[in-house]
Design a protein around this nucleic acid. Structure first.
Lengths: 190, 190
DNA sequence: GTCTATAAATTGATAGAC
DNA sequence: GTCTATCAATTTATAGAC
C-alpha cells in the first residue's frame, strides 16, 4: 500500500510550481493550494519555502548522479559505456524536466550551506563523466584532447534539455537521448 | 562624445541585477540604487520592471542573432563556416554571460506579447544553424543525420555557458569557443 | 527630471481555535 | 494536523513638491 503523505503532496506541488514559475515567483499560498491545503499547513510539514526547494533539489541531484553512475558501471567497453552514460543522462533530463529545471535554475536560490551540499553531487557527476573519457583514452579507444571540457560539453547536451523540453512535444526523450549518444561517440572516437 | 543617459544607466543596472538575482527577486529599488537614483526615477525612463526586462532581452536576442548571421556569411566553405558560427556563438555567450542569462532564463518572465516578439529571433538563430548544416550536407562535405536536432545541440553548447561561465574563471571564453568549434566539426564531418 | 512620501497589494511566516 | 485570521515586512507603482 502506497500512502501519499501530506508532506509528499506538498513536495509534489512545489515541484510543479517551482518548475512553472520559478522559486521566487512561487508563493507558499500557491504551493499550499496546489496541494489542497491552507497556507499555514505548509509550515506544519516543512520549515520554510527554501527548505522545500532544498528537498526537491537534493532528491533531483541524487537521482541524476545515480543514473549516470549506474550507466558508468553497466559495461567496461569505452564506447558502449559512453553511449549509455550520455543516453541515460539526457533521457533522465527529458523525463524529469521539471525537477531538472529546479535543479539547474534554482541552484542560486538555495542557502549557501544547502548549495554547498548539492555541489558535491555536481562534482561527482562531472568526475564520473571525466573518468569514463580518461579510461577510454587510456584503453586507446577514445581520442579526447580536452577531457574536462569535453565531459562538461557532453553533460551540457542533457542539461540544456530542461530549458525547453516538454513531454508530448515534437520529439521524444528517447529520440533526443539517442541523438546525443550518437553525437557523443562522434565527438570522442578515434 | 559618448553621453550615458539616465535611461541607459538604468538598463545597465537592470542587467547586473537580473543576471545576479533573477527577474522576480530583483526589486525596482535595487535597480534604482545601482543606477544611483531614487526608486521613483525608474518610472520616468521606463514603463515597468517588465518593460526593462524586455529592453534587455530584445537587445540580447538581436546581438546573438547578429553574431551568428555574420559568421554564417563570412565564408562558403561548410566546415570553416560551421567552425566560425559555433565559435562566435559560444564566445558571445561567454563574453556576454550576464545578458545571455537574462535572455535564456527570464524568457518566461516576459509578457506573452513580448515573448512572442523575441521568439522570432530564436527561430532565426535556429534556422541559420540548420541552413548551414543543410548546405554542408548538400555540398557533400558534412554528414548529418538529424539536421534540426544537431543544430539545436550545437547551439546548446554555447547557450549552456551562461549557466556557469564567469569571467576570470579557470577557462577563457576563447578556449571554450575553440573547444566547441572542434567538437562541432567532429560531430558533423564526413 | 529628480526627489520624498505613500498608496495598495502581496509576501513569508505565525498565533491560536478546534 | 488542519483551519481562519493576521502580523510585519516588502513590493510595484504613483502623487505631488521642487
Amino acid at each position: 500500500m502506497t500512502t501519499i503523505t501530506a508532506r509528499q503532496r506538498l513536495i509534489d506541488a512545489a515541484v510543479e510550481a517551482f518548475a512553472e514559475k520559478g522559486f521566487t515567483a512561487t508563493t507558499t499560498r500557491d504551493i499550499a493550494s496546489r496541494a489542497g491545503m491552507s497556507p499555514a499547513a505548509v509550515y506544519v510539514h516543512h520549515d520554510s519555502k527554501e527548505s522545500l526547494l532544498f528537498t526537491v533539489s537534493l532528491q533531483g541531484h541524487r537521482a541524476a548522479l545515480d543514473v549516470i553512475d549506474r550507466a558508468a558501471e553497466s559495461t567496461t567497453d569505452p564506447v558502449d559505456r559512453l553511449r549509455a552514460m550520455v543516453y541515460d543522462f539526457s533521457l533522465w533530463h527529458a523525463d524529469n524536466s521539471r525537477v531538472g529545471r529546479i535543479v539547474q535554475y534554482e541552484y542560486h536560490a538555495l542557502t549557501p550551506a544547502h548549495r554547498a551540499e548539492v555541489a558535491t553531487f555536481r562534482r561527482s557527476i562531472e568526475k564520473t563523466m571525466q573518468d569514463a573519457l580518461t579510461d577510454g583514452v587510456g584503453q586507446g579507444v577514445l581520442d579526447v584532447d580536452d577531457v574536462p571540457g569535453t565531459a562538461f560539453s557532453l553533460l551540457s547536451l542533457g542539461v540544456d534539455l530542461v530549458r525547453w523540453f516538454e513531454p508530448g512535444g515534437s520529439r521524444s526523450g528517447q529520440e533526443l537521448a539517442s541523438l546525443h549518444a550518437d553525437l557523443a561517440v562522434r565527438m570522442t572516437s578515434r
